[in-house]
């Protein structure tokens, strides 16, 4: 069964990368979102897909039951989900503003930080 899940995660990664490589800024950002979900799943998979029992110490018990799920990857992924949400929202706003200013969706056109070199040997000089 893990094999099917691994395949699904791999496909999600492929879709995320494919979208992120796009020159269209919007697709690029959506790609990051998909890639983010996929990477979260990879981290989660490192703790193995296992029991359905949540990692909660049951009343009266002193420690977590043997058959509960692995809590550590859950904690890591929970943090990651929230952070990636915040950053994606910011990216979407930034992308919208960029597009409004430059008038282009093409990420190849965004060259303010690295203008095309005038001299083939020397690196471009930034003002």
């Amino acid at each position: 069964m893990s094999l099917i899940l691994a395949l699904a995660i791999a496909l999600t990664v492929a879709a995320g990368v494919y979208l992120a490589l796009s020159r269209d800024l919007f697709r690029c950002i959506v790609g990051l979102a998909v890639l983010g979900s996929a990477v979260n799943l990879v981290v989660f998979a490192a703790g193995r897909f296992g029991p359905i029992q949540p990692p909660i110490v049951s009343a009266g018990a002193e420690k977590l039951a043997e058959h509960a799920a692995n809590p550590l990857p859950q904690a890591l992924v929970l943090t990651a989900i929230v952070i990636s949400f915040a950053l994606l929202c910011f990216s979407l706003v930034l992308g919208a503003r960029l597009r409004q200013q430059s008038g282009s969706d093409d990420s190849n056109q965004l060259r303010n930080a690295e203008p095309l070199p005038a001299d083939p040997v020397k690196p471009p000089v930034l003002d």
């Binding site: 990692p55 110490v57 049951s58 509960a68």
Partner: peptide
């Protein structure tokens, strides 16, 4: 399972929480 076991055992006595994920966070 080393870390998972440790968190599972330490959650209640050290942090007084039963939801281990929340305790970790």
């Amino acid at each position: 399972a080393q870390l998972a076991t440790w968190f599972g055992e330490a959650s209640l006595p050290l942090a007084h929480g039963r939801n281990v994920v929340n305790v970790i966070i």
